[in-house]
Structure formats: C-alpha cells, structure tokens
Design a protein around this nucleic acid. Structure first.
Lengths: 202, 202
DNA sequence: AAGCATAGAGAACTTTTTGAGAACTTTCAA
DNA sequence: TTGAAAGTTCTCAAAAAGTTCTCTATGCTT
C-alpha cells in the first residue's frame, strides 16, 4: 500500500508520461509536488519500482517507464503486461503480480476467424452488439457450446447449442426476451464454435 | 529510449531525407543542431543505428538511410481473418466479405496493461468474471467511462465513473444487485480507463 | 517516553549526457 | 591518381541527472 506522497508521485508520473510520452526528471516530479529535494523523490520512485507500478532504467536520465511501454514501442509482438486481478465485485486486492498476456496465445489458432456481432440475442452471455467473436471452424459441437449455425443454408446466427438426441437440435439465445428455436437436425449446419470474444471501447 | 539530442538527431535526419531524398552529412546535422563537432554527431548516429531507427553504410558519404520497407510487414503479425457480421439477434446475413482484424491495432497501445476480472459487479455491461480487461493507464476519466479506481489506497475495483462536480465521485457497478457508491474525490484514485475486453472459452 | 512510519532538506558522490576538438582513415570526384 | 571532403576513433571536460547519505521534524501507536 502506498503512502499519500507515494501515490502523488505515481499519479504525477503517469500524468507526465501521458502528456510528454517520456519519463519525468526527478526534479520535475519534485517541483510538481512542491518538494525541494530530489533525494526524497528518488526514495518514492524506488518504492514505486519495487511495487512494480513503474519500471526504471537505473542511472538513465528520464529512465522512468510504465510497465509494458517498452514492448509497445519495441516490436509488434502482441504482448500486453498482465498486472493482476481486479475485483469487479467486492474489492479484493490491488494491482500486484507481474506477468504477460500474449494475444496470439489468447486468440490465434488454425481455422479461426472473426465475426462482428449484430443484435442482442446473446446479451446475457456477455456478448454485446458490435463485439468481435473468434470462431473456430468445425462442423460439430458439444451441448452447451456457443456456435455459429446456418439454418436452411440461409441465416448464420450465434446461439447456444443443444442436441436433443431425437433428430432435432435447439438453438438457444441468451436473452430472456427471445425464445429458443428447435429445428430438425438436417436443417442446421454448424459453422464453428465460439472460442473467444473481444470488445473495444473506442 | 533516446536522449534529447539523440531524438533531435533522428528528427533532423528524417526531415532531411524527406526533403532531399538522400542522407545528410554529419556536418550538416551538426550545423542543423548547433553542434560544432562532427564526432559528437557520429556518436548519435551510431546510437540510432544500433536502435535500428536508421540504417547506415559505413564509411560511405551520406550513407544514412531510413530502414527499408521490407520490415514494414512482419512475419508474426497477429492477424485473424474477419469474415463478416453475424446476427446474434434476428439472423441477417451469412458469412461474406473478406477482411482482416489486427489484434495489435485492437488491443495494443502505450501504457496499457491487462487485468483479470473477479466478481460480477460489471456483469450487465457484458464484463464477466475471468474476463480480461485492457486498461489504459491514466489518472483522469470522463463521465460514463469504465475505470479502475483505487479507494482509500486499498481497493482496486472496476466500475463506471461519474464525477458529481461537488467534490464527490460515484462508482457505479453494472449489476442491479449492487448499489453505486459515492466517495469524496480525494479518496478515489483513477488507475486507468477500460479500452478493451476479451474472453476465452476454453 | 520510546519506537516507528512518513515526510522533507540538503550535501556528497557517481553516472549519464552533451560537447569540443585532434588525429586518423576512407570515399569520391576532378 | 590524388587531394579535398567526409567518416571514424579517440581523449578531455563540463553540465545535468540519478544515487546515497545524514539529519530533522511530525504525527501516531504502544
């Protein structure tokens, strides 16, 4: 847990980098926080680095970075820093460990493609309009999987899949305003199963 | 990471090549930057070459080039085929056009990191437990944005943000079972804003 | 009162960054 | 071919910035 001034220092650094695209000098932090001694700031910066909230290149002028920055300007290895777990319900723990999330591992695979979602039929499964869904091409699905299905060779839809074992299958929307639909199995062609989903807030 | 004068040198070179379609002399760079010693410029140029920001032919007069286009497209760009739109509500159109979705464009950016969601407080915004959220580090947010906020320097939570303009801010969970919480502004530190979300079904 | 954590000042020191310039080698065009 | 022009390699130095100290002060807890 950070003290008040450590938090101030952290906020200043992020603000500065957001504005200037480079790390601040210790003396810039000092004057920004109304501190006269860069030795004091150095102490705070070291604490932040130890908490892995920032990364720093020792000795280097302006050698303060935000985690993950170096990858961003490095190559386009699609890797993001994985900082920890965030409580979306009861607050649990603050930002902590250090790891990496490789986007390729997360999304890529043979026979996969992306579709953009229209409509709200899967909204209760957390799939919203304009989300992108990653589909792995295959022609069979297990019960409960979310699939892209073509009905009567005409309409591709994203639904939860159930095989009724009696020659019919049911496509279930995750939206209480909509009804599941049951078809004879031969009318329904599976195009693929949902393996991932992504959304951009821009 | 470049120092100030290294950056100046790089800017000058790119400017020069853009204008003259050939590399500058060391002495042209020197006079352009107000440096009297070409030895100094040589040192900067070597640094830029080591960082692969420029390419140079040793010894050659005007032997400074910008990196060729060959590195522009690279081998493991995380790209998935984008096949089209899928109807999650009423079935609309079948798989159609051909395009690409670049994962880097979708997710990457300076100062971004990933957190794993715990709890169900944002479930009605389509953010489920175990989803990964991409956060862009910043310390301010606009009303309505979803933010990672630290309350009393203890608890990092994902909530929708509202500034009440009276010295208080409200953090709003997207879950009708939970109540919005209002705090004095100084108790709440924004860690970043939500820019993307992803989920894997494995 | 003693001990501890936080906060700040400032001095002394080290390292990085920047610059000058001399001496040398290579390139290139007359 | 050859000499001026340009690139390369040094050394020296100073300014700027980071690092490491010690000292002081103020609360808070025990």
């Amino acid at each position: 847990m950070l003290s008040r001034r450590e938090q101030d220092t952290y906020d200043f650094i992020r603000n500065y980098i957001g504005e200037h695209r480079q790390g601040p000098l210790l003396e810039e932090i000092a004057s920004g926080l109304g501190i006269k001694s860069k030795g004091v700031v150095h102490r705070y910066v070291q604490t932040l680095a130890k908490a892995e909230l920032i990364e720093l290149i020792p000795g280097r002028h302006r050698g303060i970075q935000l985690p993950g920055q170096e990858q961003a300007q490095d190559e386009n290895a699609a890797v993001l820093p994985l900082l920890g777990r965030i409580a979306a319900g009861l607050p649990i723990e603050a930002i902590a460990d250090q790891d990496e999330l490789n986007l390729s591992d997360f999304f890529m695979g043979p026979g996969r493609f992306v579709l953009k979602v229209q409509g709200e039929s899967m909204i209760e499964a957390g799939i919203l309009p304009d989300d992108m869904v990653v589909i792995e091409s295959c022609i069979t699905a297990r019960n409960g999987e979310i699939v892209v299905a073509l009905v009567d060779q005409q309409e591709a839809t994203l639904k939860r899949f159930r095989n009724n074992q009696d020659g019919t299958v049911t496509l279930i929307p995750e939206n209480s305003d909509m009804r599941p639909m049951t078809f004879e199995a031969h009318r329904v062609h599976i195009q693929g199963v949902l393996v991932a989903q992504m959304r951009s807030y821009n």
